[in-house]
């Protein structure tokens, strides 16, 4: 059981590493956020889960389930807040970007106000 937990923890840390690599490699803020949100969510979940089943004797399974739920609930909220703030702060998207509906609609809204 301890070995099984250790393997899951290792997979989790691999995902965390890939998330960090993604933050380094992606071209703009939004794509970095994608890597930073997704890879780290599963990474953290697997990491905590691996610890909880590797050390069943500590009786911390319930606490770790709570931690996992908190990560699932708060991670998307914070990344949404960051992405929204950076878009309104006017951070440009990368040149590879196909389209930007939000930018277009905001310009339209401002036009109506004037």
């Amino acid at each position: 059981m301890e070995l099984f937990g250790a393997i899951i923890t290792l997979i989790g840390s691999l995902f965390l590493f890939l998330g960090a690599l993604g933050i380094f490699r992606m071209p703009d803020v939004y794509n970095r956020m994608q890597a930073g949100t997704k890879a780290t969510t599963l990474g953290t979940i697997l990491f905590l889960f691996g610890i909880s089943i590797g050390h069943l004797e500590c009786g911390c399974f319930g606490k770790i389930v709570v931690l996992i739920l908190f990560v699932i609930f708060t991670n998307p909220v914070s990344s949404n807040a960051l992405a929204r703030a950076s878009h309104f702060a006017g951070i440009k998207l990368t040149d590879k970007t196909m389209k930007d509906d939000l930018e277009k609609d905001n310009i339209e809204n401002k036009g109506e106000e004037k």
């Binding site: 992606m26 939004y30 794509n31 998207l93 970007t97 196909m98 509906d101 939000l102 609609d105």
Partner: peptide, 10 residues
């Protein structure tokens, strides 16, 4: 090659 094709959609 970093195969991304990003954009903001509604």
């Amino acid at each position: 090659k970093l195969p991304i094709n990003p954009g903001i959609v509604k």
